[in-house]
Computed example of a mutant assay.
Amino acid sequence: MPSVDLSYSVGPEVTKTINNERERESLTRQDASAVLVQNVFSGLDTTYAVEQQKALISSAGNTVKENANELALAASTYYIEVLRTHELLQIAKDNVAVHKKYLSQIDEKVKAGVGRSSDYKQTLARYENALSIQFLAEQNYDNAVSSFERILPGNLGAADLEKPSVGNIPANDLESLVKVAMENHPKITVSHSDIEVATAALKRSDAPFYPKVDIKAEAYWNKNVHGVSTGEPSLSPYEEDSGYNALVVLSYNIFNGFADKANKEASRHRLLNKNSTLADARRYIRAYTEIAWQTLESTKQQLVHLDNTIKSSGETVADYEKEHELGRRSIIDLLNIELEYNSAKNRKVTAEYDRLIAYYQILAYTGKILEEMNITVE
C-alpha cells in the first residue's frame, strides 16, 4: 500500500539572501504539502516481510497449542500422582495396623511368659519402621495435592477425583507411534514455523543489496518563503507559489559499513539455529515417545505377574495365620509374609499409575491429549 503524508508549517523567518538582494526580510513563512509514495521495488523486502509476519503468527498460534499440550500433560501427571500417593498411604496405614495387631499379640505372650523378648523387640522395630513409612506416605500425598493445586486451584483431594483408565492410543506399534508424534507434536509445528520465520528473514536480508524504486507524487503550496515577499501582494507577485510533480525515484545504497553483510550473516546463523532446534525436538520427542511406549508395554506385563504375586501372597498370609493358631508359625513368620504381601501391593500401585502416566505421555507426545480431553484451543 502507498504512504500518504500531509504537512503544514508556519512561523517567523528572517532572511538576507540573493533573492531579496541581501535586504533583511522578516516574514511569516508558511509551507504545506501532500506527498504520496508508492514503492515499486525494494529487493522483495515487502514480499518477504509479509511472509515473515504470517510465519510469526503461525508460530505464536502453535506456541499456544504447545503450552496447552504441556499444561494438559502436567495436569494429568499431578492428578494421577494424587491418586497414586493416596493409595500408597492407605497401604501404609493398613501395614501399620497389621504390625500394631501383631505387636499387641506378642506383648501378651511375653507378659504371659510364653513369648520371647527378642521377638517383641524385633516386632517393635518393624512397627516403628511401618509408622515412619506411613508418615512419609502422608508427606508424599500432601505434596502431590499441593502440586496439583498449582495447576488447578481449589481444595481437592483423592476423594474428589476419579481414577482414569488406559484408553486407545494413536498407533499399534512403536514406529507408527513415533511417526504420528513427528507429524502432530506442537513442538514440531512450532519449530517448522520458526524455520519459516528465519527463512523469510534471510531472504529479506538480501533487499539492501538491490536498488529501491518509488513513484512519488507531490503537491505543495508556499508563502513568504526565503524572504522574497514584501508582505504586500500588490507590490510582489512572489508572495505565494505552488505546484505539483510526479517522479520515479531510484535510490541505491552502495556502501553501508558492511552492516548489511553482517545482518545477512546473522540471519543465516539464526536459520541454522532453528534447524538445529527442530532436529533436537525430533530427537527429544522420539526418545520420550519410545520411553512412554516401553513403560506402557512393560507395566502391562508387570501387572499380570503382580496380580498373581498378590493373590499368592494373600493366600499365604491366610495359611500362615491358621498355622500360627496351631503353633506352627511364629509372629516373625507372619510379619515376613505380611511384608512380602505389602511390598507386592505397593509395586502394583506403582506399576498401575506408571502405566497411566505413560498413556497420557503418549497422548501428549502425539499431540492427541487435548483432543482426548475435549479441549479446544482458540
Rank of each mutant, 00 (worst) to 15 (best):
D5W: 02
E25P: 01
Q30W: 07
V35S: 08
L36C: 09
D45R: 14
T46E: 08
T47K: 12
Q53F: 12
Q53A: 11
K54S: 12
S59W: 06
A72R: 03
A72T: 04
L73E: 12
Y79V: 13
Y79N: 08
R84S: 02
E87V: 01
A92R: 09
A92V: 10
V96R: 04
K101Y: 07
Y102C: 00
L103N: 03
S104N: 08
I106V: 14
S118H: 05
S118I: 15
S118G: 05
Q122F: 06
L124I: 04
R126Q: 14
Y127F: 15
Q134A: 12
Y141M: 01
A144S: 13
N155S: 10
L161V: 05
L174Y: 04
S176Y: 03
L177E: 03
V180P: 07
A181D: 04
P186Q: 07
T189K: 15
D194N: 15
T199I: 00
L202A: 09
R204T: 06
Y210T: 07
K212T: 13
V213E: 03
N222H: 14
H226Q: 13
G227A: 00
G231V: 08
Y238D: 15
G243L: 02
Y244T: 07
Y244V: 03
V248T: 10
I254E: 02
N256A: 15
N263G: 11
R268Y: 09
H269F: 14
R270W: 03
N273T: 11
N275T: 09
D280N: 14
D280K: 13
A281W: 01
I285Q: 02
I285F: 06
R286N: 13
Y288N: 15
T295C: 01
Q301V: 13
V304S: 06
L306F: 10
D307F: 06
K311C: 02
K311E: 07
A318K: 00
K322D: 00
S330H: 00
I331C: 00
E340K: 11
V349W: 02
D354E: 09
L356K: 07
L356F: 04
L363Y: 03
G367P: 03
I375W: 02
V377D: 01
E378I: 09
